[in-house]
Amino acid sequence: MMMTRSGKLNITDLEKMETAEVISFDGLDPVFVRRLMDLGIYQSARITVLNKLSFDRLFLLEVDNVEICIRRDDAEKIEVRK
């Protein structure tokens, strides 16, 4: 398992089909965080990495039966806990 510098886990550290709980959104634009929340990615939400697409550039996540695709750059900023 790869760890980020601070020892924190983010979405990109998860394996395919692994589930984790969202802890924080560090360094993401508040407007974008709002959009994530609208779609069900909120603090304490349980997300599953369904797939990594386009050479691992995009992450397909599942939360509450909704499937959402975000970029790696943004996924890296979403801290999670297994």
Binding site: L39, L60, E67, I68, C69, I70, R71, D74
Partner: peptide
């Protein structure tokens, strides 16, 4: 360059 979020 902005964020990308897409519902499938």
């Amino acid at each position: 360059g902005s964020n990308f979020i897409l519902e499938m």
